[in-house]
């Protein structure tokens, strides 16, 4: 078991390097020199050069093999790619171009609010999706099942944006059932009040896709031999479903849970923006609007790390549920 975990973690290393490489390519190579942006259109060449040196952009973009061969280790190491790797992996992302605040600090303060939105949405959503999917499989082709199928397809066709706009305007605005927007300054019980409507909307938006997906997974499972055996043995449908099928379906469900996680990122983006929740999604939308390159760069990497973390956790859970996989 331990060796499996270690292998899994080691596997992440080339991926992380790859991600850092991608952010470098995107934001430095393709994106170009930030000096023009920061210094302004009419700065003199001299001022730009000075700024370049200050920010470290006078170094070559890529490591130069020539220097390595010449034995100039220091010169070889002084390039933007390595610099980017160094700052990325130590999570020292510099300062926001718009607000001059330390980006790491911004991320730290934004993580809490985002989590208070995504974690409940995830838990509630997952539970509802699996339960409904189970019920559908339990009563295959019944009116319930068919209605759910239709509703889920309708659900995934409605644009998320429209749902949020309507939800906020009517449930909060017109009818005053929930706060319209905002987030308390200090983390406490009042968070519930502000997070309620966005979470409910997020759950509603993801329900269609999730139910559809898990229904397929569970139905696939019900075709397995052991189910036929159990039925033949006379075990009641309920026992079959909840006793055997669910247990075994859990395996593919867990592995596929990661499919749902990206929705949490999207939800986080739109919900935070509309409801003024100062989380990472809001930070990203704000950075895009304000063309704040260092922030977008940082968030891309951090987002990927979070996602990989979630993948790792699911893999470990999967291993716990089905130890056979560790022998692979």
């Amino acid at each position: 078991m331990l060796s499996y975990f270690i292998r899994r973690i080691l596997y992440l290393v080339p991926i992380l390097i790859g991600i850092a490489l991608i952010t470098f390519l995107l934001f430095r190579v393709v994106g170009g020199d930030p000096v023009d942006r920061v210094a302004g259109r009419y700065a003199t060449e001299e001022q730009k050069e000075e700024l370049r040196v200050q920010l470290g952009f006078d170094r070559p973009l890529w490591p130069q093999p020539g220097r390595l061969l010449a034995g100039d280790l220091d010169g070889f190491a002084r390039n933007q790619l390595f610099g980017h790797f160094a700052s990325t992996f130590t999570f020292r992302f510099g300062r926001s171009e718009q607000y001059r605040r330390s980006i790491s600090e911004m991320i730290r303060s934004g993580a809490g609010p985002s989590l208070s939105l995504t974690v409940p949405a995830f838990i509630i959503g997952l539970f509802l999706q699996i339960t409904i999917a189970m019920l559908c499989a339990f009563r295959r082709n019944s009116r319930f099942d068919r209605t759910v199928v239709v509703l889920s397809v309708l659900g995934i066709s409605v644009p998320y944006l429209a749902l949020i706009i309507f939800g906020q305007a009517y449930l909060a605005g017109r009818w005053g059932l929930f706060p319209i927007y905002g987030y308390p300054e200090r983390f406490g019980f009042s968070v519930v009040r502000y997070v309620a409507l966005p979470v409910l909307l997020g759950v509603a938006a993801g329900l269609g896709a999730g139910v559809r997906f898990y229904r397929t997974v569970i139905l696939d499972e019900t075709r397995a031999d052991y189910v036929r055996t159990a039925r033949a043995k006379g075990v009641g449908e309920g026992g079959v479903m909840f006793g055997h099928v669910l247990k075994n379906a859990l395996i593919p469900i867990i592995t596929q849970v990661v499919v749902v996680i990206p929705f949490l990122f999207l939800g986080s983006l739109l919900l935070e923006r509309f409801f003024s929740i100062p989380g990472l999604g809001f930070m990203l939308v704000d950075a895009v609007a304000g063309a704040d390159w260092p922030v977008i760069n940082a968030l891309t990497f951090v987002g990927a790390v979070i996602y990989l973390g979630a993948l790792l956790v699911t893999d470990l859970l999967y291993a716990l549920v089905d130890p056979r996989v560790t022998l692979k």
Binding site: I123, F127, G176
Partner: peptide, 20 residues
Amino acid sequence: ILGVVALVLLGLFLSVPFFY
């Protein structure tokens, strides 16, 4: 376990309109 946690949270959120 998932169900209990989920239902508690759901209950919490759905009760907001009554207290808010």
